[in-house]
Amino acid sequence: MIRLPLVLFFSAALFSIGVYGVLARRNAVLVLMSIELMLNAVNVNLIGFSQLWRDLTGQVFALFVIAIAAAEVGIGLAIVILIYRNRETINLDEVSLLKW
């Protein structure tokens, strides 16, 4: 018997750490990693509730999230590599053309 709030706290912690990582990291790949953290937090939430209500919907959804996350990482890394090819850098501070 695991108390639900613990699961949820875990998920919240992972999520906020992921947010910090998205906002604070310079390297684009590291930003993508932080996004993965956030997705996993969401998944934990889903699984937790799924087991609570004995509803398989949550787990199916979690599977879909994993699939989407995989696709997203693939595309994201392709874009990062293209940026690296063009700019010789994936430092997000230096990839800021759309500014005043």
Binding site: M1, I2, L4, L8, Y20
Partner: peptide, 29 residues
């Protein structure tokens, strides 16, 4: 970033403990 992250954490924690009692919902295996 840290500020925003902490804000989100605080918010979520508040929501969770507002919504669920500490002992009641137990996830059955």
């Amino acid at each position: 970033g840290a500020l925003v992250g902490l804000a989100i954490l605080a918010g979520l924690v508040f929501l969770i403990q507002n919504a669920f009692a500490w002992n009641d919902p137990k996830v059955e295996l």
